[in-house]
Design a protein around this nucleic acid. Structure first.
Lengths: 145, 145
DNA sequence: ATTGCTGCAAACATTTTGCAATTAA
DNA sequence: TTAATTGCAAAATGTTTGCAGCAAT
């Protein structure tokens, strides 16, 4: 009934057309992913989906995540030393800063960096399929810690 | 007794001073890593080390790699969908292009990108602990695949 | 009525760990 | 001598998969 639900509805129709069945489990996951403003991992998504669909299995979560990724609906991020984290692909492309102290993920975007990456690849006879830019950061401290 | 061996000797002394014992297994691994001009994974390093030290165990390889990484002697790279790959840290900092068709790793470096990363982090009140920039690329094809 | 999806349990791949024996220092 | 390191086997982690039944279309 909100704007988000309308978007999800449209997405749902698109998926169905692609031959993907929208089961209760998948509907719940789509909802949970649409709501998320963080970058949850599979287990956390499972936890959240269980509210809507008690008994949903972790395998189903993994399988659905794989399917949605294949459909380009979500992105999977493999940050250092952590299980994969997911976000819906509805946002424009961006890279990530990971606060190494808190695990927080901050999104950012630099067209200049993007352009330079493409240049570098082109210079060596390649084209970029996709890329990964992650800044592992720490809150700047005034003086010695 | 080539130049490389001299460098390894110096490294060996430094490690010993840090309380790290240089066993036959570790000497072999240091040698194997110094020789490598690719970015081998643990199992491959194990395979190569077995020539010098038959019977060396994979656990020892992993433990040694962890120890050498902690000493800053090697770098560990976790590229997408693949086991970790290692390289000695003796080279200057660089980023990586991974040929998605062949798995080949090409090193590159862009001071401008580095500078911009630092700027972006600083703007948001962070300092970079380390970063990861990987371009997943494909040989540019003249026309249709 | 199909055929894809589910839950379960078991398999998987990579990496880590406990322990008693060994070895570098 | 003695504390770090080894090999082995077992465990841990995160993810995938085979299968028989179930459910979306």
């Amino acid at each position: 009934m909100t704007k988000l639900d309308k978007r999800t509805e449209r997405l749902t129709r698109a998926l169905r057309n692609a031959g993907v069945r929208i089961t209760r489990q998948r509907a719940a996951l789509l909802h949970v992913i649409a709501q998320a403003d963080d970058h949850p991992e599979a287990v956390e998504l499972h936890r959240r989906a269980e509210i809507d669909v008690p008994g949903i299995s972790l395998s189903t979560v993994y399988r659905t995540l794989t399917a949605l990724e294949a459909q380009g609906v979500i992105h999977r991020h493999q940050f250092e030393g952590a299980p994969a984290r997911f976000e819906h692909a509805a946002t424009e492309h961006h890279d990530h800063m990971i606060d190494v102290d808190t695990g927080d993920v901050i999104e950012f975007r630099s067209d200049r960096i993007e352009r330079m990456q493409a240049e570098i690849a082109a210079e060596m006879g390649y084209e970029i399929v996709h890329h990964r830019l992650e800044l592992y950061v720490q809150k700047k401290k005034a003086d010695g810690a």
